[in-house]
Amino acid sequence: MERRTTRLLAYQRDRRKFACICYTLTLSWLLLALLQWVLISVIAEITVVFVEYYWISLIFFVVAMMLVSIFVFFERVRAITCLNWLMCLLIVEFVIIGVFNLAALSHWQELLVWFFICMLLLFGFVLIGSIIPHDLTLDVVILFVLAFIFLIVTVWFAMISILLKVPYSFVVYQLSIAIVVLLFVMYHAQTINGGRFAEMRLNDYLLAALILFHDFIILFLLTFYQQLVMRFIVGATTAARAVSEANRGLSYIDPIIGPVQEDYVDDDDSNSTTAVQKFA
């Protein structure tokens, strides 16, 4: 009995250490990402590059997804000490660079506020998942069924948002995805903290931190609609804010929101056709 108690205490100590490493790594990577995204948003010369050559971010993001797939599905890669750290750092940095093109368009104040909102949601639901008595790892099938239902909902609202321009339909799309992600954040937290039906192995702290990091990335990517279109923080006065100073020569404007009606008026005097857009 005493030996069993000793093993249990040792397991709990190792599990707490594992969870602490996971959350510390996740927080470190998030702060690293924040620093780089703010610099991209503020420094004019870099902003122009990633707005004009957006495909740079696209390439890095695609490569990051390929690397993370290898990291997840090939256990031997995670077992090699130097290689696992190298791949993990490359994945994190490539994902960060993959968001540069969006961060370049965002105002730094919007970016900061939404970053901390997403970080609060992430660690808040990690805490909720850790303290609730219900074991979500027993309900993984239910979670995937709910995820599939929400997938159907998101596709429908995405279509009516893109094609019919229904007001606030994209917000419903965002909320549906966010709910699914936060459910899985609680599930991941329980597998990290242990003491449940399913738990992560104690040597997989890099994988656990990567999972939480990508949970955050999904939430943060969703907020760029608010950052670039709604602009709750800096206001509508920056809707046509120049990306650069006078020497940059590059600007961006808001995408069209709501139904658009186009009337083509023939101007006989100038022999040209002018497109007049009326926004509902």
Rank of each mutant, 00 (worst) to 15 (best):
S28Q: 05
L30M: 10
L30R: 04
L32P: 01
L34I: 04
L35T: 10
L35V: 13
Q36V: 12
W37D: 01
L39W: 03
L39G: 03
I40Y: 01
V42L: 06
V42T: 11
I43R: 00
I43T: 05
I43H: 03
A44N: 11
A44L: 10
E45N: 07
E45C: 06
I46D: 02
V49Q: 01
V49N: 00
E52A: 03
E52D: 07
E52K: 05
Y54D: 13
Y54N: 12
Y54K: 09
Y54V: 07
I56C: 07
S57H: 03
F60W: 11
F61G: 12
F61I: 10
F61D: 08
V62E: 05
V62H: 08
V62N: 09
V62I: 13
V63A: 05
V63H: 01
V63Y: 02
V63F: 04
A64D: 04
M65N: 15
M66T: 13
M66Y: 14
L67A: 11
V68R: 13
S69Y: 13
S69H: 13
I70T: 12
F71I: 01
F71Y: 12
V72K: 15
F73T: 07
E75L: 08
R76Q: 14
R76V: 07
V77M: 10
V77G: 11
V77L: 13
V77W: 14
V77H: 11
R78E: 02
A79G: 07
A79L: 13
A79S: 12
I80S: 15
I80W: 15
I80R: 15
T81R: 15
C82V: 08
C82N: 13
C82Y: 14
C82T: 08
L83S: 08
W85R: 07
W85I: 02
C88R: 09
L89Q: 11
L89M: 14
V92W: 07
F94I: 10
F94H: 09
V95S: 08
I96V: 14
I96E: 05
I96A: 06
I97Y: 09
I97S: 03
V99E: 03
F100L: 02
N101K: 12
L102K: 15
A103L: 02
A103I: 03
S106L: 05
W108H: 07
W108C: 01
Q109R: 15
Q109W: 14
E110M: 03
E110Q: 10
E110W: 04
L112A: 05
W114G: 00
W114I: 00
W114N: 07
F116P: 04
I117P: 12
L120P: 04
L121K: 09
L122V: 03
L122D: 04
